[in-house]
Design a protein around this nucleic acid. Structure first.
Length: 195
DNA sequence: CTTTCGATCCGT
DNA sequence: CGGATCGAAAGG
């Protein structure tokens, strides 16, 4: 499979299957200040049949992007000050997405330091709000196309990850469905949220 | 219409 | 552990 087809097939999957496959993929964005790249190390799956998901109560103006075909972005604003970035997956009409929780900075580190007002590399994108801020995401980026030079791009890893470097655990910061182990992260990463 | 509370972060 | 800060969703 070519890299593009590789990702296109992941976008078609249900969020629960797509989530672990997005680990190791490279997130990139071209900003006015230069190129930013990060390696995804932690994600969470959400879908409409489960009460912790924004899509649980059906299609609303806010959650509409989750019901679009896989490959778009679902960006939401929360706690009065933070943005979070999701990759929508699945077919049109199914409300599901993968929350990007943490990533390892690779390229454009000084740009991210500026966006975050933070010097420590391990503290640039080790949380969903921090990750969005490191990418320079704001209200103009709500629910855009994923594959576009003006928004955010995803690049497949050089090779498939072996299953035993991935850990599954309960999701963070939710009050419902806390038992579901739908959070996935790379075991050996130093860039996970909640160190 | 009014109230509640969140897929968070940071400083204490 | 609590404050910041605001919009979506729940409640009356």
């Amino acid at each position: 499979l070519k890299p593009d087809n590789y990702l296109a097939n992941i976008y078609k999957l249900p969020a629960l299957q797509a989530a672990p496959k997005l680990l190791g993929c490279i997130l990139e964005r071209r900003t006015g200040h230069g190129l930013i790249q990060l390696r995804i190390v932690e994600v969470e799956a959400y879908h409409q049949d489960e009460p912790a998901s924004h899509a649980y109560r059906g299609l609303t103006e806010r959650t509409a992007p989750m019901f679009e075909p896989g490959g778009r972005l679902y960006v939401y604003f929360t706690y009065g000050m933070h943005y979070c970035v999701n990759i929508v997956t699945g077919a049109k009409g199914t409300g599901e997405a993968v929350l990007l929780r943490a990533a390892e900075p690779l390229i454009g580190i000084d740009i991210m330091r500026e966006f975050r007002a933070q010097d420590s590399i391990t503290n640039l994108a080790n949380g969903p709000g921090k990750l969005a801020q490191a990418l320079g995401v704001n209200s103009t980026d709500l629910s855009g196309e994923l594959i576009s030079p003006t928004t955010i791009n995803l690049v497949a890893p050089t090779g498939p990850l072996s299953k035993d470097v991935i850990e599954a655990a309960p999701r963070i910061g939710i009050s419902k469905a806390q038992d579901l182990p739908w959070r996935f992260y790379l075991k050996d990463s130093n860039f996970i949220s909640k160190l």
